[in-house]
Amino acid sequence: MQQLRNERGYSQEYVIENTHLDISRYETGDSIPTLRSLLKLCKLYEITVSEFFAPLDYPPKEK
């Protein structure tokens, strides 16, 4: 989350003001965002939920 925020050039304060979410707790791992929170963040960043999770490197599924 911090990387995405930094890539957009947003401060924590900006994201907090525009989403009303305590992103500092998410960025430190002290709290896990709900789906509703993720949707708010995706709206702010103008990305889809799929795009939000795209950088995750999941192991390939076996067929």
Rank of each mutant, 00 (worst) to 15 (best):
M1Q: 11
Q2D: 09
Q3N: 12
Q3K: 09
L4S: 13
L4Y: 08
R5W: 11
E7S: 14
E7V: 02
R8M: 06
R8L: 10
G9L: 02
G9C: 01
G9I: 01
Y10I: 12
S11D: 07
S11M: 09
S11Y: 10
Q12Y: 08
Q12A: 10
E13L: 04
E13I: 00
Y14N: 02
Y14W: 08
V15K: 02
V15Q: 00
I16T: 08
N18D: 01
N18A: 08
N18Q: 07
T19D: 08
T19V: 14
T19C: 06
H20G: 09
L21D: 06
I23N: 05
I23P: 02
S24I: 11
R25S: 15
Y26H: 09
E27W: 10
E27Q: 05
E27H: 11
G29R: 03
D30N: 14
D30K: 15
S31F: 13
S31P: 00
I32A: 15
P33K: 14
P33A: 08
T34R: 14
R36G: 12
L38Y: 07
L38Q: 06
L38H: 02
K40N: 13
K40L: 12
L41F: 04
K43T: 12
K43V: 10
L44Q: 03
Y45D: 00
Y45A: 02
E46Q: 01
E46D: 07
I47K: 03
I47M: 06
T48R: 00
S50E: 09
S50N: 12
F52L: 14
F52E: 00
F52Q: 01
F53N: 03
P55A: 10
P55I: 01
P55S: 01
P55W: 05
L56V: 06
L56Q: 00
D57A: 07
Y58H: 12
Y58M: 09
P60C: 12
K61L: 15
K61N: 07
K61T: 14
E62P: 04
K63R: 03
K63M: 07
K63P: 11
